[in-house]
Amino acid sequence: MAAEGSIDALGQFKLETSLGALGASVNFTQSNLMMLIAATLIISLLYFGMRPKAIVPGRLQALAELAYDGIHSMCVDQIGDEGKKFFPFVFTLFMFILLGNLLGLLPFSFTYTSHIAVTAALAITVIVLVTIVALAIHGMHFFTYFFPPGAPKLLAPIIIPVEIISYLSRPVSLSIRLFANMVAGHVMFEVFASFILMMAAAGGIGYLGTVGPLALNVILVGFELLVAFLQAYVFSILTCIYLHDAVHLH
């Protein structure tokens, strides 16, 4: 804990090894543990959710079908018919980010999407895939993407570097957006929770004052639930938009 009265808002993002001595020996952090839990939850949702194969779905099956159908229609709407090929990738991406955001809201857990290393790895995977898809479909024609047709040839030395930088900034903006949203939300939780402790430490009238930050934190949990869904949605829909650009070019 930091010095008296100061707020240690970033300590919650510190990586520590988990699973005891075994985890420590291979540097298995709590972030990795949460990823494993998220992956297990996704797979069991789909496995146990779809096992009944009921015509009128139960709760789990409805959840699994809703997730599957939602992402499937997003892929087809955004990319077109070719989107079906990319559905497994986008679905995995969406569920992994969503579970990371949601699991992070549980007490004593850890938000792995709050680390830029994780979000940047995801975003780089996306951009590498998009580039490979574009090169595979269009070959060398892909490079005309960096010079819009009809632009004056004289401006090429300026337009081409700007377009390349703009293309390279996609993974950066993807990863920063997700990481910054998660960090901001969790820092706010921590700050308001510290206000509760400070108020209570003041004693007397301070006990009454704890109601304010506590109520704010309750509201924040609801807001963070929205952000968790929204950021997973934004990440996957931007992936779809980039894939659309790769498949259709311009």
């Binding site: 930088i165 900034s169 957006r177 929204l230």
Partner: peptide
């Protein structure tokens, strides 16, 4: 909330900020 056609002004502002910043970082 979930529709990209009519995002909230706050969301648009955040996206614009992130886009500006990320291109500058890359450059």
């Amino acid at each position: 909330a979930g529709d990209m056609k009519g995002p909230s002004p706050m969301g648009v502002g955040l996206r614009v900020g992130v886009e500006l910043l990320s291109a500058l970082i890359v450059g």
